[in-house]
Computed example of a mutant assay.
Amino acid sequence: MAEDIKYQINAQLADNALTPDNAEDKIAVPVSLGSAGQERILAEMKAEDSGLRPETILHVFELEKRVIKRLLMTGYNVNTGLYHASVDFRGIVTGGQWNPEENSIVVNFNVGADLREAIRNTTVNIIGNKEAAISVSGMQDVATRATDASATPGRAFTLSGKNIQLAGKDPAVGLVLVDADGTETQVTTDLWVVNKPSTVTFIVPAELAAGTYTLRLTTQYSGNSSSPLKNPRSVEKTLYVGTKPPTSGGSAGGDSQEGGGEDPLG
Rank of each mutant, 00 (worst) to 15 (best):
E207D: 13
A172S: 14
G96S: 01
N108S: 07
L72E: 02
L58D: 11
G161R: 14
S50D: 14
A47C: 00
K244V: 07
E258Q: 13
L63I: 03
D181V: 09
V67Q: 10
A118F: 02
R116C: 03
E64A: 15
E207V: 13
G250V: 01
E44H: 06
V31A: 13
S160T: 14
L115R: 00
D179R: 08
T144S: 05
V106N: 12
D148S: 08
E262D: 10
A149Q: 05
R53I: 04
G51H: 08
L52G: 09
T189Q: 02
K65C: 01
H84A: 02
N79F: 05
F109M: 07
L215E: 01
V111K: 03
D15S: 06
E48M: 15
Q12D: 09
V178F: 07
M1E: 15
I92D: 12
N125P: 00
Q140V: 12
A2F: 08
N121S: 01
L265Y: 04
L58Q: 08
Q97E: 12
N163I: 08
K230V: 01
P246R: 15
G112V: 05
N231F: 06
R116L: 10
L166A: 01
G266V: 04
V60Q: 11
N129H: 08
S35T: 10
L52R: 15
V194M: 08
I5W: 12
I41V: 06
G154C: 09
S35W: 05
T152W: 11
Q165R: 10
L177T: 15
D114M: 11
K169G: 09
V124L: 13
M73R: 11
A2C: 02
A206V: 15
N125Q: 14
S226R: 15
T94R: 05
S222K: 04
I5S: 09
G91E: 08
A85T: 04
R53S: 14
D179C: 04
H84I: 05
W192E: 01
E184V: 15
K65Q: 04
V67C: 14
A2N: 07
A132P: 06
T189C: 01
V194T: 14
N79E: 05
V204Q: 09
Q165S: 06
T218I: 12
I203E: 01
G260P: 03
T144H: 03
E262C: 07
P228C: 04
K237V: 03
A28Q: 12
Q38G: 03
V173W: 00
G254A: 13
R116N: 02
Q97H: 09
V111R: 06
F109P: 03
G51I: 00
Q97K: 07
R53H: 06
K69V: 11
N99P: 00
S137F: 10
I92M: 10
G91Y: 09
